[in-house]
Design a protein around this nucleic acid. Sequence first.
DNA 1: TCTTTTTCTGACCGTATGGTCAGGTTCAGG
DNA 2: CCTGAACCTGACCATACGGTCAGAAAAAGA
Lengths: 222, 222
Amino acid sequence: MDDAVGGERPKIRRNTSATRAATRKANEDAILKAAETVFAEAGFGGATMQLIADMAGLPKANLHYYFATKEELYRKVVERIFKIWLKAANAMDDAAGPAEGIGAYIDAKMEISRKYPNGSKVWASEVMHGAPVIQDYLETTLREWTEGRCAVIRRWIAEGKMAPVDPAHLLYMLWATTQHYADFGHQIETLNGGPLSNADWAAAKTSVKAIILRGIGVPPPN
Amino acid sequence: MDDAVGGERPKIRRNTSATRAATRKANEDAILKAAETVFAEAGFGGATMQLIADMAGLPKANLHYYFATKEELYRKVVERIFKIWLKAANAMDDAAGPAEGIGAYIDAKMEISRKYPNGSKVWASEVMHGAPVIQDYLETTLREWTEGRCAVIRRWIAEGKMAPVDPAHLLYMLWATTQHYADFGHQIETLNGGPLSNADWAAAKTSVKAIILRGIGVPPPN
DNA sequence: TCTTTTTCTGACCGTATGGTCAGGTTCAGG
DNA sequence: CCTGAACCTGACCATACGGTCAGAAAAAGA
């Protein structure tokens, strides 16, 4: 009977038998995931803590328990993306030549665009607005990585393994083309008349690799 | 004497001997220009009418005289960009073949990225957030334009003037690569150690054209 | 069981923002 | 010179937002 009274709230137990640490991690992950979505869809300025809280299924005040400020939460989201992004960079390492190395890098970045489109959008938004949060990453980690890859490409060119192209502009083209499928995914879907199928994604990968590899004088492995 | 009193304001005459229409146009242009900059730098949500007003040198209330709401102002900014963007599309028309047509299109789009980086950023931001304002453009004008160009490319392929590549993905690559120099200009400048010089821009154009034209099986005119 | 620490949250606050409006100013047309 | 329309703006308002906090609730430790 007393259960039937309207005012009684169910008192949902969010984490029944988990340790402190596990609960914390679960909540932080839920918040970060929700934040990534909201930041991607609305931008930093358009995102609200309330919306993120609702999407994560937590009261707003709880967000501020885990992340002191909106900026801190945003920073964590961006850093998370940057790490994923850097991992893909390894695809280019230890490759015998451009066909293998650049081909694998394109594949890896296309996969990321497909799997983490929101992350890519947040990154794009951050850079477009002058990288107020990750400027130091650009100047240190990214710069070093870029210079290292440019050196590799230059070596490949010197060894006659590919056509002599400007390494930096080649990298920009790789980034632009692969990330376009995430950042401009909405436009592509509109023109495509719906979400990309598995076959569509495969065709995209093949097309990108075909043009770029041929473009740098390397026969596409097909 | 009375002039010397501190309280006297200079009463700057903003438009001395202009017609009503000219004044209106000048003010609207100033507002649109300021708005483009602010929207590009801060996104829609992060932009404030006060900031736009300050940058345009007008009181905030005056903005609302010319543009009823923030949304309306934003819409005008986006539409303006879309028109510029479409104009460049003509560079691809009436070309004898892909070398000429696509080469000219790349040149035109690179010029736009250099000249209107803010416009490109606003466009990118709009699309990334699901195109809430220009969805209809995507579905009508852009779609028609895209299908027209795809047909042209297919014809070129059928005529043996270029390698058989997926036309849509080629277009995406063209958009991505050229717009990257505007949207990710900050990242490029950071890696470059400063703004791109004339020579840098020329190198960028040359690199992009070289890779893509060779990539579609067309000898670069260079 | 009692105490301490961590976790959680409703209610609240100051500020900044988009937008309004009454009243003033300027201008074109007569 | 007069008048009505167009133009301009300081002051104001309601709202929504990021952030705070006191204190409840739960878990861990003793």
